[in-house]
Write a protein that binds this DNA or RNA. Structure first.
Lengths: 340, 340
DNA sequence: TTGTAGGCGTTATCAG
DNA sequence: CTGATAACGCCTACAA
């Protein structure tokens, strides 16, 4: 019953020719006679011969695999990036090996080391919070020193020389804050995470820049820093109750969604009494009630660009030591949490 | 600057011993003298020697890679499954290659054929809608005939003999419908997709079973079949307006979320005038307003079980021709769309 | 205790 | 036009 994979050797033996003749015949080489080629090709087709990827990888020192290392996969933004990577990679004949660091430094290191031993031709990754906290990038440096191309996206670091793709997080926060100010909001809060996350830091900067630039006199920083990646509902509730904000910008969707619920429970009208803008224009923003105005991060595009940059590096012969950082423009998507 | 990967050959040449001596020494073989072993191990460590995965794969005919083929990755349920697969696979030293079929039969076929040529040791997959529509499973049969283990989850077919993992979709729909009936709902609608999707079909069956079993006299089927995977807001709106339902069960989250918005726009109170239950207990259900009662599909557990079954098959020597189907119990998670 | 040889499946070079 | 040989990196049975 088992139709095991057939190899060049089998064909050669069966047809009583040499392995190299078979190999050439299947490549339609000019060296081989029409007759022999036809015989071999017919036989190969009949038995559904397909070359073994692993053997080819060993020979070519090319796997046609891309390693994508992300902190979490149950996460809208990262999945859109993966989709973008897949999309581009597939057109170029590459497969995508997905590894989850689970926001852990150790897992990130282990995963990368494993894949770096020949399983992939290059990495596309976003740093785990654990890594950004430890601020230790030796595993990345080792990879690049071995000549394995690396593209960092979204959560990046300046410690490593490699190609990078991000959106202009500061500008995103700036745009959002500006929008709120222009709507006449006077006390604009920011709910963020720790600054060791590169993106949160950049967003905070953008928020502060806008405040400074357009700042109404009484304006001041109203920043809530969540202690962990998890959401702490109580903190948000207290923040809304005590800080008397009339607008809130959050570095993700969840904080906003939850904030809106708290606000509504407190009897506040959205957006009349308080308005919200979140980051990461995902499903939650679209389907929230009221729908959430948010800063689109263009994950899919980011994935495509990352894959393009990576494959370009993989396939370029020369050892170019030039790296670039592509910065995408964020887009403000207006919904009912700021307008009605 | 480039510290290229070092091989056994390099070490052997450098230390003026044979390759096999190096190989054995690094495996701490008894055959090799203490002295030689120490010398070799020290050198290997210094130069950070790591065996090449590809070479080992070729030799062992084992890649330690699992191919996961799913219709879409920007999708909560599938990502939870992937996470479960990763979790279990990693503990067993396997990597996960993710391929997206994009709901397309053709892409599913291409992806699988590519990976089947030696890149993976087994498949975990959920059928694309395109495949279920075509009802053509030859690509799956070929894979299993080649002796490559396959586990189907969620969207499965009886046409292929292999291990399967699903939740009891009929029971899920039955439980939900029963709950609605017990709450005194009289006109319970179902919003689903085409029946060629195995899960939608099963859910419809469960819904009808409950209606029949508990059916209030006036009860009848109030079924809206969405023509595509995409959501058509207009159809839902008309359905709610015209069918006079006082409860709706939907085969995913989105239909419910959207339905709730339509209902609220029509001035209906949830859950007083109309209540909702959806499938796939994801973020949307949790953060919707009101929060959505839903049937949890236990994706992560499903992924773990799939991986466990697959790896068990991969690593078992014998050609067992026995396949099992594991059926997980769905769980009804009550939220504010049915209670307040 | 160490080394040689052959093989995993493929391709490229060179010889016949 | 066809085939033998070596090589990719590793492992292992068998010699020495």
């Amino acid at each position: 019953m088992l139709k095991k994979k057939i190899t060049l050797k089998h064909i050669a033996r069966e047809l009583e020719v040499s392995i190299s003749t078979v190999s050439k015949a299947l490549k339609n080489s000019e060296e081989i006679s029409r007759e022999t080629k036809e015989k071999i090709q017919a036989f190969a087709k009949l038995y559904n011969y397909k070359p073994n990827n692993i053997a080819i990888s060993l020979k070519n020192k090319r796997t046609k695999n891309i390693g994508v290392v992300i902190p979490d996969i149950v996460h809208h933004f990262f999945t859109t990036v993966v989709r973008g990577v897949e999309k581009y990679a597939n057109t170029k004949g590459y497969n995508v090996i997905v590894c989850l660091s689970d926001e852990s430094f150790d897992k990130e290191v282990i995963n990368m080391e494993l894949l770096a031993n020949g399983s992939i031709d290059g990495f596309i990754m976003s740093l785990s919070s654990g890594t950004q906290k430890e601020n230790d990038y030796n595993h990345l440096k080792e990879v690049t020193e071995q000549g394995i191309p690396l593209v960092l996206f979204d959560r990046i670091t300046n410690e490593v020389e490699c190609d990078k793709v991000i959106i202009d997080d500061a500008m995103g926060a700036y745009l959002a804050t500006k929008k709120l100010i222009e709507q006449g909001r006077k006390r604009i809060g920011l709910i963020t995470t720790h600054d060791y996350l590169s993106v949160s830091k950049a967003r905070t900067t953008g928020y502060q820049k806008a405040l400074k630039e357009f700042g109404v006199s009484e304006q001041q920083d109203l920043i809530l820093k969540m202690p962990s990646m998890e959401m702490d509902g109580q903190l948000i509730e207290n923040f809304i109750k005590n800080s008397k904000v009339d607008a809130i910008l959050t570095v993700n969707e969840i904080f906003s969604i939850y904030g809106m619920q708290v606000a509504q429970d407190l009897g506040l009208k959205i957006p009349d009494d308080i308005s919200f803008i979140g980051f990461t224009d995902g499903l939650l923003s679209k389907y929230a009630n009221p729908s959430l105005t948010s800063i689109a991060q263009h994950g899919e595009r980011m994935g495509e660009i990352s894959a393009e940059m990576l494959i370009q590096k993989i396939e370029s012969e020369e050892e170019e030591e030039t790296y670039q950082t592509k910065i995408l423009e964020p887009t403000l998507i207006e919904r009912n949490s700021t307008i009605n």
